[in-house]
Design a protein around this nucleic acid. Structure first.
Lengths: 137, 137
DNA sequence: ATTTGTGCAAATCCTTTGCAGATAA
DNA sequence: TTATCTGCAAAGGATTTGCACAAAT
């Protein structure tokens, strides 16, 4: 392997837990250390790593680019509708209502994807600050 | 309006609750009654209807085409990993764990998207039938 | 020598847009 | 007339693929 795109991607994702970059963002980050890196090589590496279950690709509703994260126990995500950031939610509610759904529908549930949308604590803080300032509280 | 693509789409979606067609499938269905219908007209109508909140477009993880449904109270979906069908889950668990997530993270939750993946009751029935037959039970 | 990884360009696939003509108000 | 809707073709944007060459085994 010439420069090991796959290894670089895994390293990058491990270095920043809670970070959910798109292929393009990953490409931008790697291009620094790997001059001449091709976009398609990143895609190919992402495909390979996904099928090896080293990483997980996921699409958030209303987005058109896939995001990637290190493969771990599947967990919910939270997307801030103000700043766009995506957070991991580290609460184990993944098989939420599994039994209820199974009994109610007769289907068998094997996995659940949950995404919360709202305002993240950081944007919330900014909003509050602004209100306090504007109203001279 | 020449032939009312928007009205046709709403009609089509209302006729079949639990049906989550993609733009292409909607186009195929309408083309019958509307010869000469352009693909782009369907897309434009879907965009308009979505922003009017008459319909809702959503993307399921690992799919690359948007699906559409009549706009109703947001609810979970179930996708069968065998046959690919997408079902509505009519159990009110949408703001599932809202408070828990808010307290735990400090974010404010405004909406939740939940998708279950597994084997639907119909595929399950077929599997069971096959097993019964193969084993001459 | 054989397999695997990579860069580059071209091709796909889904979706959006520009524009001119048709329709409705 | 004025605003809206349409069809058609072209453009966009993300992802995939073919191919020849480079690198590793």
């Amino acid at each position: 392997m010439k420069r090991g795109v796959k290894n670089q991607i895994v390293k990058l994702l491990k270095e920043r837990p809670g970070w959910h970059p798109t292929a393009r963002i990953i490409y931008e980050h790697l291009k620094g250390k790997m001059p001449g890196l091709a976009f398609s090589s990143v895609y190919r590496a992402l495909l390979a790593l996904s099928s090896e279950k080293k990483i997980r690709g996921f699409t958030l509703d209303s987005e058109d680019e896939k995001r990637y994260e290190i493969y771990t126990k599947s967990h919910p995500h939270f997307k801030c509708t103000e700043c766009g950031r995506v957070y991991d939610i580290d609460i184990d509610i993944n098989l939420a209502f599994k039994e209820l759904v199974e009994v109610h529908t007769g289907h068998i549930v094997k996995d659940v994807h949950i995404t919360y949308f709202g305002i993240c604590n950081e944007c919330l803080r900014k909003k509050v600050k602004k209100i306090v300032k504007d109203n001279d509280v």
